[in-house]
Simulated assay, not measured.
Amino acid sequence: MGAYLLLAVAIAGEVAGTVSLKLSEGFSKPVPSIIVVVGYGLAFVMLAQVLKAGLPVGVAYAIWAAAGVALVAAIGAVFLNESLNLTMIAGLALVIGGVVLIELGRSAL
């Protein structure tokens, strides 16, 4: 598997784990609690494979974190009735823009 595909799986695991953390209600609900553990486990195993595949840790972590933040915020707004205003959207755009700049900077080396 390519490093970016592995990274996508890592992001999906982290997002599933984070959303399930909210749904677990303090680990009082078994199914979401299990998804938290499995999701984070998958995320870190896949992130380790991404690094083993040669993607620099700074780039991998930046993409992983930014995509996770953006996806969790979107899922929270759409499915969990959490607020998302223009200021927050601008912040998410800046986070994503920062990751793009990190990736572009890596390409310039």
Score class of each variant (00 low, 15 high):
77 A>K: 06
100 V>F: 14
101 L>V: 12
107 S>Y: 08
68 G>H: 04
73 A>H: 01
105 G>M: 14
80 L>M: 06
103 E>L: 10
83 S>Y: 08
96 I>L: 11
97 G>C: 13
78 V>G: 02
68 G>M: 05
79 F>N: 04
71 L>M: 03
90 A>E: 08
81 N>A: 07
99 V>Y: 11
105 G>Y: 09
86 L>C: 08
73 A>M: 00
107 S>F: 09
89 I>G: 03
93 A>K: 06
99 V>F: 11
75 I>W: 01
93 A>M: 12
105 G>E: 12
85 N>M: 01
83 S>C: 02
66 A>D: 08
90 A>H: 09
85 N>Q: 00
103 E>T: 13
102 I>W: 15
89 I>C: 04
88 M>P: 04
90 A>M: 10
77 A>E: 06
104 L>C: 13
90 A>N: 07
97 G>N: 14
71 L>Q: 00
105 G>L: 12
106 R>M: 12
105 G>I: 09
81 N>T: 07
72 V>I: 07
101 L>G: 09
96 I>K: 06
89 I>A: 07
104 L>E: 13
101 L>H: 10
96 I>G: 05
92 L>Q: 02
67 A>I: 06
69 V>M: 02
86 L>A: 14
86 L>F: 10
82 E>L: 04
104 L>N: 11
95 V>N: 11
74 A>W: 04
75 I>R: 01
83 S>N: 07
67 A>T: 04
67 A>H: 03
66 A>I: 10
74 A>V: 07
89 I>W: 06
104 L>V: 15
66 A>M: 10
89 I>F: 08
77 A>H: 12
98 G>E: 15
74 A>R: 05
66 A>Y: 05
69 V>K: 00
79 F>K: 07
78 V>T: 02
101 L>Q: 11
77 A>S: 09
99 V>R: 05
71 L>E: 00
66 A>H: 07
79 F>P: 03
77 A>F: 15
85 N>D: 02
91 G>C: 07
82 E>M: 05
86 L>W: 10
67 A>L: 09
106 R>A: 15
70 A>F: 02
76 G>H: 01
70 A>M: 00
67 A>Y: 03
71 L>F: 02
79 F>D: 05
83 S>G: 09
67 A>P: 04
74 A>H: 04
90 A>K: 09
96 I>P: 06
102 I>K: 15
86 L>K: 11
94 L>Q: 07
103 E>N: 12
106 R>D: 15
82 E>H: 04
99 V>N: 07
83 S>L: 06
88 M>K: 14
68 G>F: 04
74 A>Q: 06
72 V>N: 02
66 A>N: 08
77 A>W: 14
70 A>W: 00
100 V>C: 10
97 G>S: 13
86 L>I: 10
88 M>Q: 14
81 N>C: 02
95 V>H: 11
70 A>G: 00
78 V>C: 02
76 G>W: 01
101 L>T: 10
94 L>A: 13
107 S>C: 08
70 A>L: 03
97 G>R: 14
102 I>V: 15
69 V>T: 04
96 I>F: 11
71 L>A: 05
99 V>M: 08
74 A>E: 05
94 L>D: 09
103 E>W: 11
99 V>P: 05
102 I>E: 15
89 I>E: 02
99 V>C: 09
100 V>I: 15
86 L>Q: 12
72 V>C: 03
80 L>S: 03
66 A>V: 14
88 M>C: 08
82 E>P: 04
100 V>G: 10
75 I>H: 00
83 S>M: 07
100 V>D: 10
75 I>K: 00
